[in-house]
Write a protein that binds this DNA or RNA. Sequence first.
DNA 1: GTTTTTATGATTGACTCCAATCATATAAAG
DNA 2: CTTTATATGATTGGAGTCAATCATAAAAAC
Lengths: 258, 258
Amino acid sequence: MKVAVKYVQARRSRLAQLLQQHRFLPLTELCDKLGVSEATARRDLAVLAQEHKITRTYGGAMSSFDQTFSSFRERQVRAPEAKKRIALAVHDLIKPNSTCFLDVGTTLFALADVLRQKPIRGLTLVTNSLPIAEMLGPVRGYAVHLLGGQLFYRQSLLLGGVALQTLKLWKFDHAFLGAEGMTAEGIWNSQPDVIDFQLAVFKRSTQSCVCLDAQKLDTQTDYLLVDWKANFSLITDATPALLEKRGIQTKKGQVISA
Amino acid sequence: MKVAVKYVQARRSRLAQLLQQHRFLPLTELCDKLGVSEATARRDLAVLAQEHKITRTYGGAMSSFDQTFSSFRERQVRAPEAKKRIALAVHDLIKPNSTCFLDVGTTLFALADVLRQKPIRGLTLVTNSLPIAEMLGPVRGYAVHLLGGQLFYRQSLLLGGVALQTLKLWKFDHAFLGAEGMTAEGIWNSQPDVIDFQLAVFKRSTQSCVCLDAQKLDTQTDYLLVDWKANFSLITDATPALLEKRGIQTKKGQVISA
DNA sequence: GTTTTTATGATTGACTCCAATCATATAAAG
DNA sequence: CTTTATATGATTGGAGTCAATCATAAAAAC
């Protein structure tokens, strides 16, 4: 039984929109929502797939537009077990009702995941990482703030003058930062404006922690963030013996082992 | 042929991680990536699904964590055609190399989608909406900035003192705002801090536009944003005749019809 | 008003996916 | 070293999905 062309187009529009709102919908559910048979839904999906408006899977469909910070999430995560251990060690440090800054990076993302799964009461969390904000935003009892700034999409982070300016409004109990490497000389990163930002975070924090796994040992990039005399803690899965073996001389109590 | 328990656990961890990095993977691809048979992959997926670490679908799997601003995206979108027309009308207004502010709301999200599909060269875009930042972040040639502030996850927006502060750093060629309703008296919204913020945006914009579809006619909420004497443009699919019929007296050239 | 076009749901046979079962081989336990 | 447990891949039969086909009914065109 033929229906009017404009009804068909409206139905297909609504179908595409439904799939934009859900990550995946099985065919039977699409039939229910649209009030059509499987055969009709299949034909609609075939047309929309051909127009690249949806993505077809076996038994269902999803939208074509990938609304996640895909370049961040596709990044190869190395040493996930070590990062998880560091994240758990950090979790043990954080007290209820405290204010923490979370930097960008896969170790901090692992920390966000632990904070999501094991919430700590009354936390105020400040970050410039959009995936971390996205991860922790739904957790009841958390007040999540973003610093703002220019969006660097590939790294899923916000930087620039605005971020530095809004940073000045904050005072953190703890700050948890990432870096690219650590050597006998200190902690290294590869972008000067990231370092500027991180130093600014240091200044505004009662306790500043750099979270690095053992794979970052002996990695030196272009810019020295801090040397070992500076006032910060290192949270790492590398043992004190291993650190000493690599010529890293830390102060008493500076290293927190994960 | 039995393999060690720790190999099984490592493989399952890697499987969960793979699915965190991709929205969906078919079973055959998971087999390829993990180097196991379908039967083994199915058993692994069954275990991970039971532990709520992944979501199983017919023919494949995806991660459990829903990494989109789901409360925003699940919101019922009404009058999508009208919103699309308004979005296209706005697109026609925007000149290359200009600086625009995009507010929160489903009409502005439709605008973001048009700006994604039909990019305008050299735009600087400022927003406090995370889905809009996420949508436009990947577009080459766009500089996307977020204002920062406290994350209101359900509305997927940033508000508060920080947002107002960082707003002061900007001057917009155009600002495109949403609202809850319009009557003979003016434009209405339902939250005072949203109105404070929007008025601050008005002040910093050469041209301020409110984008409302006809469904918002005769809708009055708690707070008046602006009356019709104020200096702003209305971009709407409601005809001038319909506006006049509802007792809305606009200034010459104030209404841009979509 | 008549003819043509086409969208629909039902049906069908082919294809894909699935869990259960089994034999085998290795890890784990004693 | 022996015995037990269990992870694996292959196989199987059942379940689910799929596109093609068809009859029907209404929209569209004339």
